[in-house]
Design a protein around this nucleic acid. Sequence first.
DNA 1: CTCCTTGCTGAACGACCGTATAGTAGCAGG
DNA 2: CCTGCTACTATACGGTCGTTCAGCAAGGAG
Lengths: 205, 205
Amino acid sequence: MTRDPSDKTRVRLTPDARRAALEEAACACIARGGIRAFTVDKVMAEAGVSRGLILHHFGSMDGLLVAVYTRMYRDSIAALAVPRPGLSPLEALIEALLTPPQFDRAVQGIWLTLWGEVATNPVLTAAHRALYGEYRATVAAALRDEAARNGRTIDAEALAAAFICLMDGIGVQLCVEPQLMTAAMARAACRALLSPHLGPVNAAG
Amino acid sequence: MTRDPSDKTRVRLTPDARRAALEEAACACIARGGIRAFTVDKVMAEAGVSRGLILHHFGSMDGLLVAVYTRMYRDSIAALAVPRPGLSPLEALIEALLTPPQFDRAVQGIWLTLWGEVATNPVLTAAHRALYGEYRATVAAALRDEAARNGRTIDAEALAAAFICLMDGIGVQLCVEPQLMTAAMARAACRALLSPHLGPVNAAG
DNA sequence: CTCCTTGCTGAACGACCGTATAGTAGCAGG
DNA sequence: CCTGCTACTATACGGTCGTTCAGCAAGGAG
């Protein structure tokens, strides 16, 4: 991932490829040291490029941060919608959330950092507004589908909100108490929240 | 809170009073701009003191951050244990979590920032280790008490972990989607998680 | 081959970062 | 009054921050 700093040969990539590489390098920096490690110097060293390149492609560090946030959301929502054999859409969604790469301390640490920025950085707040509804809709749709399968009637929006809270909290715990928050404990918590509304949910894999 | 910068008269406080004032100023800065606003210049301006004073009392910025984290934990745990007339200890704990000053976007934003630092800053990780067990124990004790009142048998430690996850996630949501996360929605989520294990829990105030 | 677009470099800028330190002033004990 | 202690101020330091910009080089078009 990181190039030898003494290697002066230039590698010319397409804008999309270079942007992706810089976003990945930024994620690595954020995972390692939080938002205070999201600096021009550190990202450039991680990606093995020169100072100027970051702002050439993203205009500013805020621009790169928005790109990182968008990338995380896009990857995450796509992973949640992948069908799994033998599992309902909701079960597949839960399974995706509770196994790698989603259920991973580094990835959840990036989310934790980004949420903190969403709360205080207006540029990221604006980006969040545009992305968040899609995530809620994906979860709510899976819950509605599961309720229909089980012949139940639910307030899918409200349950989706509660479920998202629980998953966010599990992510926080995975960051601050990694040895306590096991996947098994997370599954049990999901079951405790959803079963009363949906009937027994197979969240055991 | 902030003194007039042109006021050159010195105000001499006891070390405890000055430390408390600096911790409060630091909280205000963190609430406003996250960990990137936790700087010597900003805290000193917020508190209306000179640069040197912060390091005179706390040794370093990490020292002040640990003091802020400790203060937040102490205040929070104390608030959760306050008895309320007509409510069981668990109900009082939930009520404290879902009403101001705990259920407040600024306060939860400080927590969100501190969790991010716990995940990446070794100094804060060490402080967290020493404090977190007490919080878990407080919640578990309230759950055990409620189960005994209702004649139920529960795994209090596991349920406490799930409950703490949910409350943490509610805090995150309050920060990133303040208009969606109402106290009523939070109460409903708590009820959904706890009632299957404890019987009907009065989390409606 | 030449030309031209553009991905990319690296030096430079002022601002701000955390920390160290010499000196000032408030206040208690005599 | 004087003296000692220490809360407190103010300045200075080297390092890092985000951003700007003039120029270099890679690769397709002609």
